[in-house]
Amino acid sequence: MSKISRRTFFEGTGAGIVAGAVPLRGQQAPAPAPRNTIQITVNGVAHKLEVEDRWTLVEVLRDHLGLTGSKIGCDRGECGACTVLLDGKSVYSCSQLAVWMNGRSIETVEGLSANGRLDPLQEAFIQHDGPQCGFCTSGQLMSAKALLHRNSHPTAEEVRAGMTGNICRCSNYNRYVESVLAAAGTLSADAGGRKA
């Protein structure tokens, strides 16, 4: 492919600068960061990648696989914007090293829709106005997905507990809970249904 994105352009110039840099006298070039090769499956597709040991999973997803649906909010396991499923369970991808993922299967928000059709959770998020600014939404979706894997008919209380790991700065929590209940078919007027 010859398409040049802003990212590949910057990566290209970056490499040129590094290659052309000459260490100052008396200074040693820093030792190269340790790397390892991993095999991972992301949304059903197998990848073989060489990663620096210090790279987090979300960095690899976003910067190396182009899957920018997972967001980096806090980068400290505090906000949930980076939530993905690791072998079916929700984790913060900012708090996992990519090297630990060897042989594992990861599902990101990009994997939710299939054959051009949105996941019922995504449909419900739209129907019930879940996203406001939308920054937290992909993480909310993945937490909801993990919750419904374990408990396909949750109560409103269980949805709130299952989604405590995702902060929404627009504070649209009630709509998110409502959306998940709707997707699970457990939304009723008295269980968190919206009153106009």
């Binding site: 949930g80 929700s90 984790v91 937490s143 919750l147 790991g165």
Partner: peptide, 9 residues
């Protein structure tokens, strides 16, 4: 402890 994501890891 914390959140589902932290308990899973």
């Amino acid at each position: 402890v914390a959140t589902p994501q932290i308990r899973n890891a």
